[in-house]
Design a binder for these strands. Sequence first.
DNA 1: GTGTTTGTTATCAA
DNA 2: CTTGATAACAAACA
Length: 274
Amino acid sequence: MPELPEVETLKRELSIIVDKKFKLASIFASQLKNKKIISVERRAKILIITLSGEQKLLIHLKMTGQLIYQPKVGKLVIGGHPDPSADGNPFKYTRAEFIFTDQSKLYFNDLRKFGWLKLLNKTESEKILNKHGVEPLSKLFTFQNFQNLLQKYPNRKLKQFLLDQSLIAGLGNIYVDEACFLAKILPTRTVKSLTKLEQKNLHTSIIKILKLSIAKKGTSAKNYIRSDGTKGGFVPYLKVYGRKNEKCKRCKTGVIQKIKFAGRGTHFCENCQG
DNA sequence: GTGTTTGTTATCAA
DNA sequence: CTTGATAACAAACA
C-alpha cells in the first residue's frame, strides 16, 4: 500500500530517469515519443513526471501499483525476462511500459488495476494536485497549522481525520495506525477529545514515523517494492500494523488489537494507547 | 462460497 | 455544512 514514504522512495530512486528521452511508450505513445523528462516529483501519494513541453505525467499507485526501473536491456533485476505468464513475476501485471532512448525501461505494474496514469497539461494537473492538503514533511506543517486543522473538525474521529487527503496529504492506513501508536492515542478518539499535549505528540509522531520509514525505503507489507524490485525495510519497525494478537513492543504487556474502524483494519495496543 | 485486504470517489442518510 | 456509512473498482489469499 504505497503511502507517502513509499512514493517518496520511488521519487528519489527515479531521479535516475531525469534527462532521459522516451523512445517508445505503451500508452500515450504519440504524445510521449521524443519527450524529455525534466523532473520527478511527489505530491501526496502522486508521482509527478514533468516532460519537456507543457505536460506532466501523473501516476497514482493506489493499492498494488509498482514502478520498476530496468537499467538496460538484457540485464533484469527481477525474475528473469518480463514474461506475462511467469508465475510470481512482478511483471505479470504490467499495465504500461516505457522505453527510453538509452534502452533503459520503466514498467508500471498493477495487480488490481486501481492505479492510474494521466497525461495532463499544467492546469489539469494543478487541479488534481491542489485538492490535497498540507505536505506533512514540509515547513508548512507546523504545530500551529496542525492545531488549526484539528480545531476545524472537532467531531471527527481521529483516524478519519488523519486519512483525509484534503487535510494532510500522504498518510494511509499503515502510517495513521503507527503514528497514533507512537503518540499513545487511540485512533478511535474524537478530535476534540485530544489534550494539547496529545496534539503535540501526534504532530511530532506523524513527522517522525514518515521520516523513519523513508530512511528505511518504505513498508513492503504486500505489493509495494522499490524501483529496483527489492523490498522496503520498514516492516520490522512496524509496531501495530500487521501485528494482530502479538505482544506490544513498547509496554510488553498489552496485546495488539485489530478492529474494523472507519471502514479499515485498525490496529492499536489496548494497554498503552489511551 | 465467504470474508478480508485498502486509496479514492460517489452516493445517500441523518 | 458536517459526519458517517456503504458501495464501487479488482484480484488474490486464507
